[in-house]
Amino acid sequence: MRLHEYQAKDVFADAGIPVPDSRLASSVDEVVAAVEDIGFPAAIKAQVHVGGRGKAGGIKIATSEEEAREYADDILGMDLKGYTVDRVLVEAGVDFEDELYVGVTMDRGEGRPVAMVSEKGGVNIEEVAAEEPEAIAREHIDPAFGMHPYQARKAVYGAGIDRDIARQVSSILTTLYDLWEDKDASDAEINPLMVTSDREVIAADAVLNVDDDALFRHPDLAEMEDEAAGDELEAKANKYGFDYVRLSGNVGIIGNGAGLVMTTLDLVDYYGGEPANFLDIGGGAKAERVTNALDMVFSDPNVDSVVFNIFGGITRGDEVAKGINEALEAFDEIPKPVVVRLAGTNAKEGMEILNTELVQVEETLEDAVQRAVENAKEVSQ
């Protein structure tokens, strides 16, 4: 479960991490009332689960009531990378002179949690990791003992953080790890962690993603689940019983098996495309299940093409093909080009059954992905 920024900040504040004064608002009048209470300047921030909100127009700084009203009217109701903004966080502006990054996640390669600190805050940390990996100090933690104080200090000094704020950053990093562990989180991060002109540090953003399977241990977080979902497609996924993650690309992906879907995502990226989602429909790709999957992918306005990657195991390939045909025949018009690749039991028979008036058929996964990427580029031009 992904918490919204305002929810994560409430959790962080309760744990002692400093956050700006803020109010949640869902109308222009509520925004104006909030900025009058908080004062100027004030940030108006869309509460949706996407990165790059600022560049997309989802975060604006108001210095007057007129600007607050104008920006609230612009942001509320806007489509932000496929999400409709229905709430904004109105937050006191921070007079900052530097932006840092702190985060905790699981390093699956090492099999241990890792704490990270960087002076390159305020930007996409994935890009920093890819282009300047040395700019991120990492400290692996033994979960049996938790984060020792010296480890927090080692990460902070390793990142080159100024000595006069090092103790504050170390304390926040330690608290962030404790939250990550206590809340059964998959990710906990602050980007940016702002350094004010008074040499104080404050969490200007907050990310906390919690393991769904652990929510029974956290009734307080479980209560936030409906609000945190905030996305019609993810609500549909829960209804249909799919494993689904929405991404920022335009190539829709449907597969039966997590490993199969992950491989497809990697190939889409390899061939120059951008995945729009992770969608695992599980075993037994019958017509109803395929129809539900297509309903989800076709409903995503970001999707320009779709690729099916199906492996027939216990479920035979010819049965899968019949399911795909029945599902597509239920649509009056196929809204996005669909490419299908079948493998496994009775795959050859299945490929022969597929209605090529409704789908494009490829024998290999590589060919199917390349064609889907090309389709997406043609549609988006």
Results as ranks from 00 to 15, higher is better:
44 I>K: 06
236 K>G: 01
45 K>A: 13
13 A>S: 11
85 V>N: 03
81 K>L: 15
375 N>D: 01
66 E>I: 03
219 P>M: 05
345 T>V: 06
141 I>H: 14
80 L>M: 15
104 V>K: 01
68 A>S: 14
87 R>V: 06
106 M>V: 06
312 G>F: 13
257 G>S: 02
93 G>R: 00
366 E>A: 06
306 V>L: 04
316 R>P: 03
317 G>V: 00
61 I>K: 03
30 E>I: 01
141 I>P: 13
61 I>G: 01
42 A>H: 14
123 V>M: 04
282 G>P: 08
102 V>N: 03
129 A>G: 04
334 I>G: 06
263 T>E: 04
248 S>H: 11
220 D>K: 10
344 G>P: 03
370 Q>V: 05
30 E>T: 00
171 S>V: 05
9 K>M: 05
105 T>K: 07
373 V>Q: 07
58 G>N: 02
86 D>I: 02
294 L>Q: 03
187 D>R: 13
73 D>Y: 11
15 A>Y: 15
151 Q>D: 09
324 I>K: 02
236 K>E: 15
280 D>G: 04
180 W>D: 04
279 L>D: 00
145 F>C: 12
255 G>K: 09
167 R>D: 13
81 K>F: 00
85 V>P: 03
204 A>C: 14
350 G>Q: 07
71 Y>T: 09
260 L>E: 05
350 G>V: 02
19 V>Q: 12
358 L>F: 12
171 S>Y: 13
25 A>M: 10
1 M>P: 07
34 A>D: 08
251 V>S: 12
355 N>T: 08
106 M>A: 07
365 L>F: 08
83 Y>G: 07
299 S>P: 02
212 D>K: 02
171 S>T: 09
1 M>L: 13
146 G>S: 10
16 G>F: 13
269 D>M: 05
195 V>P: 11
77 G>H: 06
357 E>H: 06
85 V>D: 06
37 D>W: 15
180 W>G: 02
70 E>G: 11
311 F>Q: 04
113 P>N: 07
281 I>A: 09
228 A>W: 06
45 K>S: 01
284 G>L: 14
108 R>K: 14
351 M>R: 12
8 A>P: 08
375 N>I: 00
196 T>D: 08
77 G>N: 11
168 Q>G: 01
70 E>P: 05
67 E>L: 12
309 N>Q: 03
91 E>N: 01
5 E>D: 05
357 E>L: 07
132 E>C: 13
208 L>M: 13
188 A>Q: 04
76 L>H: 10
200 E>R: 15
252 G>R: 00
155 A>W: 06
201 V>W: 12
323 G>Y: 00
144 A>E: 14
150 Y>L: 06
141 I>T: 08
24 L>Y: 12
356 T>W: 04
81 K>M: 06
377 K>F: 13
128 V>I: 03
329 E>M: 12
205 D>A: 10
211 D>F: 03
360 Q>D: 12
344 G>N: 01
247 L>I: 00
83 Y>D: 08
227 E>R: 10
65 E>L: 12
344 G>M: 07
